[in-house]
Design a binder for these strands. Structure first.
Length: 319
DNA sequence: CATTCGTGAAGACGAAT
DNA sequence: ATTCGATTTCACGAATG
């Protein structure tokens, strides 16, 4: 049987196992059990591999993705959409024995190359996404962030992937930045320090990734509310609920007077907690707060006085 | 002694030029 | 790309209790 004969209508009869036909050239397919692949015997395209885990893997990611998938209309054929298409097709226009191809065969090969490119591209993105979502999930768990934050993060990550922001950057850094942004957008912010703590990247990598995401995706990230950090700092330091109340009060007041502009929310939160502990005369030192909030005692000093002085009720507590 | 306070030099960052 | 202003940090000594 020559190559040419096998192309087109001449389909062999052994069609017990799907898939039977190469999606590109229509040639018959061969199951290669040792490699877990299905290969077209005519064009060499690997149609499917890793057949064991053929289930709808995309459902596992999130309900959000399920929405995305289900919105695109008719289900994508397993055959076309399954994983692991890693074949590369030679750029020579000659067959395996070196003989030049006919005109038709050349055109066919050219189309194949295009498709193969698309397959491998789509697939690398898929692997990328899978790993990234795993990381996002892991970090979100470690930070105690709820599902909607994870979903927001994964939406951001998908957009980054779609906009080709990933080549040249690490998955981990973009995933981390996505989660950080998502947490802020949902209103359950975590500090940069906390996020970096559970990730595997450096501060500089994080900042780079954060910038690119904000810039390239035109994200508007409103600044975090200092009050969102108060509860955690307060509980870590054992501040009384009365103190916590005062901390909120101080922050509210400062916000009304616009004293918070330009200042880091974490700084304000930490300063408010310390200021409150002074008011309620609890035994919490600047050092304690600075360790929990990961900042210098100097910063806490300068801020907590501002907070107290801005609030008439408590302005007497500054010496 | 532990904690707090103030200062001046230096780094980092965003905004403006 | 550089400059500028504000924030924050660091190192230190002094004051307070």
């Amino acid at each position: 049987m020559t190559r040419k004969d096998s192309i087109g209508s001449d389909v062999p009869s052994g069609r017990e196992n799907a898939p039977l036909q190469c999606p590109e050239c229509g040639g018959s397919l061969l199951n290669d059990d040792t490699h877990g692949e299905t290969v077209c015997i005519d064009c060499g395209l690997v149609v499917a591999e890793d057949e064991i885990d053929r289930g709808p893997e995309w459902q596992a990611f999130s309900s959000d993705e399920a929405d995305q998938r289900s919105r695109v209309g008719a289900p994508v054929s397993v055959l076309w959409h399954d994983k692991g298409l890693s074949t590369t097709i030679d750029w020579k226009n000659a067959d395996s024995s070196g003989a030049p191809l006919s005109h038709n065969q050349r055109r066919q090969m050219e189309r194949l190359r295009v498709w193969n490119q698309r397959f491998t591209m789509e697939n690398s993105k898929k692997r990328n996404l899978r790993q990234a979502l795993g990381e996002i999930d892991r970090m979100a768990s470690a930070l105690g962030l709820p599902t909607d934050v994870r979903e927001t993060a994964s939406v951001i990550y998908r957009r980054a992937l779609k906009e080709d922001l990933l080549p040249g950057r690490s998955i981990e850094s973009i995933a981390t930045a996505s989660l950080y942004i998502a947490a802020r957008q949902v209103g359950i912010p975590r500090t940069i320090d906390e996020v970096i703590e559970v990730s595997r990247i450096e501060d500089s990598d994080f900042r780079r990734a954060y910038r690119t995401l904000v810039r390239e995706l035109n994200l508007v990230v409103q600044l975090a509310d200092p009050k969102d950090y108060v509860r955690r700092y307060a509980s870590q330091l054992g501040l009384s609920s009365e103190g916590e109340r005062i901390a909120y009060q101080l922050l509210d007041n400062a916000q009304q007077k616009g004293l918070d502009s330009g200042k880091s929310p974490v700084t304000l939160a930490a300063a408010a907690v310390y200021a409150a502990s002074v008011v309620t005369s609890e035994d919490i030192t600047q050092r304690d707060v600075s360790e929990v909030a990961n900042m210098s005692t100097v910063t806490i000093r300068t801020r907590y006085k501002e907070l107290l002085n801005a609030t008439p009720e408590y302005s007497g507590f500054t010496q």
